[in-house]
Design a protein around this nucleic acid. Structure first.
Lengths: 279, 279
DNA sequence: ATTTATTTGTGCGATAATCGCACGATTATA
DNA sequence: TATAATCGTGCGATTATCGCACAAATAAAT
């Protein structure tokens, strides 16, 4: 996604340089892991000289490396994002409960939060039958397609969900053969039930069930699911066998999150904000 | 780690603002997930007004949130580090081979790179017997203590390794009851053998074996290991049963990495740089 | 070999972004 | 009530940043 335009910032208290520098990091991509100065300039919309300054800065800080004219990200870049993961203390607060869940169900369980239009997978306890369907930790899946996404969407207020639907790129839902009306219906049902199952379909060989995780105020801030691959139980069976375990795990996680110093606020932001910068 | 002092940058081509802004992100921490402006100012050594500007910038960009006076990192922060993971294309280049390895050994296998004094775990294929010993992806383990770390240390030049030992905080090695001489011996043996096993011991209930992964120039850029928890085979048995599989996987990964567009450079930086800024 | 089109590196003046003090308002603590 | 922190903000001074323009190096095309 080249040429990110910076919307004029409302307040004068804004550091252009920081924003531009961060955009330089994100100019790197699976499809463009190595870039020259000019490439970065094009992708970010920065002047070539500016792009160069930021690259040299990041080089100096150890976030990027260079080989001749090509720049690339270095592992240290992970430190930035991992400040967030560390602040969540996943190992202590979440992982143990996922492990219990997986042990009890003998299936793979995951923990995710809402992040824009996607679900961010933050923790997982894997069942080894599922080796071939690996989804890397930290990756995003579209919120509308996954069971985790459904429970998160169901946690939105009607207005927020309306915003979500409106802002959702029109083409996005099509590939799953799931139109907006069906999605709306599914989300509404999820809201009233407190859980949701997602059926296998074209391009998705698994069946999964998810429940929301709420903070002290009752707002949905995350979700847990159990995933069968290949699906071995019918949806009703999954509900019968796994829902109690899921609910139990969710309750425990909620308690653990409340005990953690920063329960409410940190997680509470997991709501879909329809506007990255403004609008 | 408060008050990171900025070494005066050699070149004039350096963006203070970017460096300072990044330091603001990293002011957040497992032990300090929520900070007030003044806290951030203290931890970064910035003026309060400056810290505030950066925080507001990050807030506007969606990287941090705030609840009253407290700021905290938001999931979007992961985007930054994940630019790096995406650029590695782990799912495609590494994960399949780990999965094969785990399938063949029925044990857990991991892939890691050197990152400063630590090993960064970037990919894993888990065996479900190992559920309770979960180490979150992306976490660091000290290079001296893990089998992955040993093969990476063994890839350093004698001078680099000397630097590593010198720069290693003196207290670090003690808890593992492994003194510098023993570490040096182990690393030297690893270098000549091309593999290493690490025995279970106090604070470590598993036995593991690792081999290095080299780039086109022969430099060690990463490592793969297989880990038994609880240990079921003796070390010699592990070598006999797993070493061929590990070597095979390493060879395949090396080939895949060479095929990937950016094989050499991106990985090549995984060498231990003893000096974060300078010295 | 000679052009043509892209690169990168660098200097420099003009500009605008950043700095950081200092003030008043607000809230917690003694 | 007094004391100590905190935040928010304005503003002048500074300086970091911008981005053009040029030279040099490289690669591709003629």
């Amino acid at each position: 996604m080249p040429t990110l335009k910076h919307t004029p910032k409302p307040t004068g208290h804004f550091s252009e340089s920081l924003a531009r520098g961060l955009s330089v990091i994100q100019a790197f991509d699976r499809d463009a892991p190595m870039l020259r100065i000019a490439d970065v300039a094009k992708r970010t919309g920065l002047d070539r000289a500016a792009a160069r300054r930021f690259l040299l800065t990041l080089l100096d800080l150890g976030y990027v490396g260079r080989s001749d004219d090509l720049f690339y990200l270095r592992p240290r870049t992970l430190d930035i994002g991992f400040s967030y993961l560390a602040s969540l203390d996943l190992d202590r607060v979440i992982q143990p409960f996922l492990n219990e869940l997986t042990e009890a169900t003998r299936e793979t369980s995951s923990f995710g939060i809402a992040d824009g239009f996607d679900v961010g997978l933050l923790a997982r306890s894997a069942n080894n039958r599922m080796l071939n369907v690996s989804v890397a930790l930290g990756s995003r899946v579209p919120a509308y397609s996954a069971s985790l996404g459904r429970v998160l969407l169901a946690g939105l207020s009607p207005e927020q969900f309306k915003h979500y639907l409106e802002a959702l790129p029109t083409g996005s839902v099509a590939p799953e053969a799931l139109d907006r009306d069906a999605l709306r219906a599914s989300v509404e049902q999820t809201r009233s039930c407190g859980w949701v199952t997602v059926e296998p379909g074209p391009g998705r060989g698994f069946r999964s069930i998810a429940v929301p995780i709420r903070d002290g105020s009752g707002a949905v801030v995350a979700g847990v699911n159990v995933l069968e691959y290949p699906p071995r139980n019918s949806a009703p069976t999954m509900v019968r066998k796994y829902l109690p375990l899921l609910r139990n795990a969710a309750t425990q996680i909620e308690a653990a999150m409340r005990l953690a110093q920063h329960s409410v606020a940190t997680w509470n932001t997991a709501t879909h904000d329809t506007a990255p910068p403004s609008g």
